[in-house]
Design a binder for these strands. Structure first.
Lengths: 194, 194
DNA sequence: ACCTGAACACCGTTCAAGT
DNA sequence: ACCTGAACACCGTTCAAGT
């Protein structure tokens, strides 16, 4: 049930995913879905958990704290690469379901364990999470337009139009890793300063 | 017209903002709106430009490049603080209107001027923009729930529930500034390494 | 020229009815 | 017990008609 939901989400733009269309794809009545799931949010949560399970790798307990966080952020990033429409849907619906917070719980635990005090850990959590989520939204948006830059008037947007053919680099995997490096390097320096 | 749109957006949750309700609030027929604006996206773009104009401050030409970028990112942040529902709407609709790209154009220009080569400037642009946008979405979500943490089972989420009373700090202004510091410090170091 | 009601093709979800 | 059609209260937008 969730598997076909995920397929349908992958197949078309996020706004084309509806309870009615999913029911049609399953060959059942639209209302039968509500026997499996309480509402649309719960359905998206389920599909998200399924997608997250796809990319989850068991962390090496011996690895340093920043490697754990890097792994967690890469899970968010990988799931976005595989299922950009799902990422757009989660960001767009501002889903607050428990499943979405599992990674945040893990990251917060790692930060506290690493020695950050509570306030610093919470701030780091927000910075890391929203960077990853924002990047997910951006990458999903770019995927939706097939990597093409937005149509902008050249006179008002000389730099963006000048770099139009390289525009996709701004939301590339390398850019994601770069941002993650900047944030983690900064956090490591902060921690070692005490 | 755009002013009352912005008021209506501020008044209720993002999904409550519809062309029909706006027309009612203006005391006109729903279709009359299409005389002023081509569609809903264009309306939201207009409201966003209005909101951005509210917080815009003329940059000091003598300031260093990172101060310009900080100012630009603060504009995104300030607009989110004032109009969280608008931020949620822009992120949710994945708006690709030119108005949204003005700040990106400015930032890209500053980065190139500062000496970043094209690829590095684009990566930095993505990292900075999506951090700011992701944070905007997070802060809007937190505002929607009145700063309250999500309801999570304590046994599965010990850290998040343990820090529930301080949870709002993860999306605080201080957290935003912290993230911006980490990114800009890292970019400055990268630039001085050449 | 400017405005707009009815209509179209959709939504998520409730609720009472069917098997 | 499980499924579902009709219905409710909505959407954004088109289009032909009104002034």
């Amino acid at each position: 049930v969730l598997a076909t939901a995920l397929e349908l989400i992958d197949a078309g733009p996020p706004e084309a995913f509806s309870m009615r269309r999913l029911a049609d794809a399953l060959g059942i009545g639209a209302m039968t879905l509500y026997g499996y799931v309480a509402n649309k949010d719960e359905l998206i949560e389920g599909a998200t958990l399924l997608a997250l399970a796809e990319v989850h790798t068991e962390p090496d307990p011996a690895a340093p704290w920043h490697a754990h966080i890097r792994a967690a952020m890469r899970e968010v990033h990988d799931v976005t690469r595989r299922h950009p429409n799902l990422a757009a849907l989660v960001v767009g619906q501002r889903l607050q379901a428990p499943g979405i917070f599992r990674i945040r719980e893990r990251v917060l635990g790692v930060l506290l364990e690493a020695g950050f005090e509570e306030g610093a850990a919470l701030r780091a959590l927000g910075v890391l999470s929203y960077f990853a989520l924002g990047f997910a939204g951006g990458q999903a948006g770019l995927a939706a337009s097939g990597g093409a830059p937005p149509e902008l008037p050249a006179d008002e947007f000389p730099h963006l139009t000048g770099l139009a053919d390289r525009y996709a680099e701004h939301a590339s995997d390398a850019a994601f890793e770069h941002g993650l490096d900047l944030l983690l390097d900064g956090l490591r320096a902060q921690l070692s300063r005490g």
